[in-house]
Design a protein around this nucleic acid. Structure first.
Length: 862
DNA sequence: CTCGTGCATGGGGAA
DNA sequence: TCCCCATGCACGAGG
């Protein structure tokens, strides 16, 4: 204070210790209130803008509209007139009367306004103001200053009321009450400040009862008049009773705590004041009865911006236009995969849960009734789990609701409250791609929908109007609140999860079947392979992993040959290409260097749509047939890992013969095309009629050789075991034997593990694991040998193949197939996890080289 | 084996 | 450095 007397010339009262007390401002400064006149000071600077009184409705001295002090409108629209009273900012501007400081906004604009100290000090920096101006259309927001109910003086959350009162001061001469004390609460920290913070709202309401306090629970500053809602008896007030734990107010987390917490959930303002907030806050918190929240910690309950509900100014304008109830957006959350999953648990931001949902002390929580946008009321279990020393709040049982709203990960749910009544409503905002929205874009979509729900002209009948609860309008409005545009959606997602930032197209590309992925894989374009010859077979080696290329369609020419078709990314016309062409991910007609007559989008397609349809249909029918024929092989669109490999072993080159797509050329990898004479292509892995009993192909020879070796080793080990058993009387020797066995088992496991991958690929692709160290075969031994033997006896693959209309294999092929089956089973067990890049590449025919030299990072294309 | 439940873990954002 | 929170995982119940 720079003066010992009130600087208000009309007051001049001596400063007493009572009103020397103050309350912290977001600026880091400190406000003081002169009781006699209500004038306020900030760190000794007389600031008449503080002189307003408690929150509530104020009439604009200029236009007569009502402004709700403390609501978001007031933050941006109020001007405090020199001669007293307030005015719409627009009015003040137009009349050149706003000679006093307008309440400045701060930080990031609207969002920060929620629960924030509703005013800033005079030293709010320019950047803050700019940030606000970027996001708030004051002119539009001014529309909020339409007549509203003037009796909603308790719309503000407790904290805001406190803040507002503290900030605005109180009416001159009004009696100050202390409801906290009446409630048995005390503010040991600052007893003298309470009166200033809980100024009497109006004479007819001298005290606050419990319900009043609940009504005063934290609310964002966004209060919108929606129409007279008298409170639905069916409504489960979010804070009804306020004390779901059944504790006494003084013993539990009271609404004052809520209020305090609400205040604390706000983002901390930048410290642009002369003094540190923390220091000033010490012992000077204006709110009473601050018991400890469930968890403690610095900034723990600050509501992160990503949870701020985002309402456009158009929405505010529309919403405030015709309706009288107040809808209070509380927070929103982008659904994670877990949230939208089948578990049915929606993880709630801790700060939001503690600020806006009823306090719970037991882990079991309590049921929470929330109305969705269609007016349907859901009951979720609001509970928490102990998590470290904190809590993790969840809504359980949300799956039906999520499903009914067809929400998925990336979509946003918005929790709001309808006042009066405190009904919780849950809206949503779909994370739809903007391309799929109306030509006017998401925002227009939203505005139109908004108008629709507001019953404005040229709109359709409101959808989802609640017929049962009488609050359909509100529900609809909430739905509108959920319909922000693409821009916001993107921003929303980006706030938290980088994974959710993936473009939808990219995401689509991830949803590939293994064969589709194989279809799209291309050798790295800028890397020239080195040719390695192993056992007379040439291998292409790349130092880079493959890349995705453009999908093409293979079809059969009437002449009998095969042809490849690709679709232009620009004109979507299909162009015929040479059969062995590999296209980059993006391809246009202009890239068609093979047919200069059709190297422009203006060139017509060379075949009729009917013919093209037939070509495309071949692929579609083939896929369908494949699913029908092999329900066990392709029940899932995305077999993972070695499942895909095993499936490939059975699917073999069936597809390749038909020409579904480029993958149909062979089943191996994208570089293999019809006519390819490499070992992979000329010897399909699973036989399927190509392998005769007399076949001397590398695959068959290898299988034969391995099986023969296997059986020999099995016999050898069997005899060794018998010899060991005969020496059981020698305990020491037996111990040594056990140690040896243990060692063998261990080495077997490791060896088989590394060998499996190679052999799986071998069995599937027809490759021979040329990287397999010969000595390692010594450790294949009995485990695999016995398994293979048993698997040879049974023929699951044969059965499977029969079921799928594939010819039985001969006996040797049984062995091979059994090996594949065994490996598949084993692989399934050992690989029930997401594929690594390496595994994925292997699954589509790319084999990473370096089995014995793990440091070798080369990708081998055989 | 599936599903539900409760807790643990660790990445990453905020302070 | 703190701690929120998305997700994994163990465990038990039930089919």
């Amino acid at each position: 204070m720079g003066s010992e007397n009130c600087m208000n010339s009309s007051c001049g009262a001596a400063i007493t210790h009572e009103w020397k007390q103050g309350w912290p401002l977001r600026s880091g400064g400190f406000a003081h209130l002169c009781h006699p006149c209500g004038s306020a000071y900030e760190d000794g600077i007389f600031c008449k803008t503080f002189h307003l009184g408690e929150s509530g409705w104020r009439e604009c001295r200029l236009c007569g509209n009502y402004l709700h002090c403390g609501c978001i409108a007031s933050k941006y629209l109020l001007d405090f007139l020199d001669y007293g009273g307030v005015a719409c900012i627009s009015c003040a501007k137009s009349s050149q009367l706003h000679s006093v400081k307008r309440i400045q906004t701060h930080g990031d604009g609207i969002s920060e306004g929620f629960g924030e100290v509703p005013m800033n000090n005079a030293r709010s920096n320019a950047t803050e103001g700019k940030a606000v101006s970027d996001r708030v259309d004051e002119t539009t927001l001014a529309q909020l200053c339409k007549p509203m109910e003037a009796n909603e003086c308790n719309l503000l959350p407790q904290s805001q009321r406190g803040d507002a009162n503290a900030s605005f001061g109180q009416h001159r001469g009004e009696e100050v009450i202390c409801p906290i004390e009446k409630l048995g609460c005390s503010n040991a920290m600052q007893p003298n400040v309470q009166p200033a913070n809980f100024a009497k709202i109006d004479n007819a309401r001298p005290t606050l009862d419990i319900r009043d306090i609940h009504d005063l629970l934290p609310q964002p500053y966004l209060s919108m008049s929606l129409g007279g809602t008298s409170g639905n008896p069916n409504i489960l007030l979010p804070f009804s009773g306020g004390l779901p734990d059944g504790k006494e107010p003084s013993k539990t987390r009271s609404t004052f705590q809520e209020a305090q917490q609400s205040r604390r959930i706000l983002p901390k303002p930048s410290k642009n004041g002369p003094t540190a907030n923390s220091e000033l806050n010490k012992g000077m918190v204006p709110h009473a009865h601050i018991t400890r929240p469930p968890v403690e910690g610095r900034g723990k309950n600050h509501l992160l911006p990503r949870y701020w509900p985002r309402i456009t100014d158009q929405e505010l304008q529309k919403l405030s236009g015709d309706l009288k109830s107040t809808i209070v957006p509380l927070f929103e959350k982008v659904l994670s995969a877990s949230d939208a999953g089948r578990i049915g648990r929606l993880v709630l931001p801790k700060a939001c849960a503690e600020a806006y949902f009823p306090p719970i002390s037991q882990s079991e929580g309590l049921p929470l009734r929330i109305q969705d946008v269609n007016g349907k009321e859901w009951t979720f279990q609001f509970r928490f789990w102990p998590n470290n020393n904190s809590r993790m709040y969840v809504l359980e049982g949300v799956t039906p609701c999520i499903q009914s709203m067809e929400l998925r990960a990336g979509d946003t749910v918005i929790f709001s409250r309808i006042d009066p009544g405190g009904k919780l409503v849950m809206g949503f905002r779909k994370a739809t791609d903007s391309d799929t929205q109306t030509p006017k874009g998401g925002k227009d979509l939203h505005v139109n929908a908004l108008s629709k729900h507001l019953g404005l002209p040229n709109e359709n009948v409101s959808q989802g109007r609640d017929e049962n609860h009488g609050n359909g309008a509100n529900g609809n409005l909430v739905q509108q609140l959920t319909l922000n545009g693409e821009k916001k959606r993107t921003r929303n997602i980006g706030f938290k999860s980088k994974r959710l930032l993936m473009h939808s197209v990219d995401a689509l590309e991830l949803r590939l079947t293994w064969e589709e992925a194989q279809d799209l894989l291309r050798p790295p374009p800028s890397v020239r392979p080195s040719i390695v010859t192993i056992e007379d077979h040439e291998f292409e080696e790349y130092d880079e992993p493959p890349v995705f290329g453009k999908r093409t369609i293979f079809g059969a020419r009437p002449s009998g040959g095969q042809e490849q078709w690709a679709q232009c990314d620009d004109c979507s016309k299909w162009r015929s290409l040479p059969i062995d062409v590999l296209l980059p991910p993006k391809w246009k007609c202009s890239d068609n260097v093979w047919d200069l007559s059709r190297c422009a989008c203006s060139a017509p397609e060379e075949i009729s749509p009917k013919e093209l349809e037939n070509i495309l249909k071949v692929g579609t029918d083939l896929k369908k047939a494949k699913v029908v024929e092999s329900p066990k092989l392709a029940p899932k669109p995305e077999p993972s890992g070695l499942d895909a490999l095993a499936s490939a072993a059975v699917l073999g080159d069936k597809m390749g013969n038909v020409g579904e797509s480029s993958v149909a050329a062979t089943t191996k990898h994208p570089r293999h095309r019809p006519g390819c004479t490499c070992i992979v292509c000329i010897q399909p892995p699973s036989g399927k009629g190509k392998h005769k009993s007399t076949c001397t192909c590398n695959v068959c020879l290898t299988v034969k050789r391995r099986f023969k070796t296997l059986m020999l080793r099995k016999k050898k080990h069997q005899s060794e075991r018998e010899a060991e058993i005969s020496q059981k009387d020698n305990k020491k020797q037996m111990d040594e034997t056990e140690v040896k066995d243990t060692r063998n088992d261990h080495s077997e496991n490791e060896a088989s593990q590394s060998r499996i991958e190679g052999e799986v690929a071998e069995a599937i692709t027809g490759q021979i694991d040329l990287n397999c160290h010969p000595s390692r075969e010594d450790v294949q031994l009995e485990e695999e040998g016995s398994n293979m033997t048993s698997l040879v006896a049974i023929t699951p693959v044969e059965k499977h193949i029969k079921q799928n209309g594939i010819a039985s294999l001969n006996s040797e092929q049984h062995q091979e197939g059994s090996l594949g089956s065994h490996l598949q089973s084993k692989a399934n067990r050992e690989n029930e996890r997401p594929l690594s890049d390496e595994e994925f590449l292997a699954s589509v025919g790319w084999q990473r080289e370096g089995h014995e030299e793990p440091t070798t990072e080369r990708y081998c294309l055989q």
